[in-house]
Amino acid sequence: MGLSGFRAEVGFRVDGEPHTLAVDTRSTVLDVLRDTLGNTSPKKGCDRGQCGACTVLLDGRRVLSCLVLAVTAGGKDILTAKGLAANGRLHPVQQAFLDNDALQCGYCTPGQVCSAVGALDEFADGKPSHAGDVTAEPELTRAEIAERISGNLCRCGAYTAIISAIEQAADA
């Protein structure tokens, strides 16, 4: 697809729903979701990839939507924390966050939830982390969970509960 000018047409799915729109080539997925499509589930905490609040699942992988240009997302599936609770039923990770009170102000929470879902998938795929021996199969210890979720800052300091929530969701 060759694109010229400053606006480009792009189509992708958000929480299962297809959208086709003309975007400014400069727009990030985060800004298109929030400002154009009105899906404010992913949050803007730094806009520079330093806090994790904007985490979404892009074709199933957790990414920072503040650093993805919308024009590069053509044909992709974007899943937000809102979409994880389709039909009003919470995803097990979301339920675990509630059960463990793993949130306070709630601003980092949708990003934490998406990141946790992605991290558990990565673990299920046998992907290693810095917390374990890279030559061995990873084990989902609390240290492993903490390392894998450390890209998501929480200023309210809910970390201990977040680890417990992810432990619970992993066992579910």
Partner: peptide, 27 residues
């Protein structure tokens, strides 16, 4: 007692100041 605002926060549907539901916003 679990948080009353918990569902809205884990789904990201709690709306914060920037996210006010208005039409035709300028930036």
């Amino acid at each position: 007692i679990p948080r009353r605002d918990g569902y809205a926060k884990v789904t990201g549907t709690a709306t914060y100041a920037y996210e006010a539901d208005v039409d035709n916003a300028a930036y």
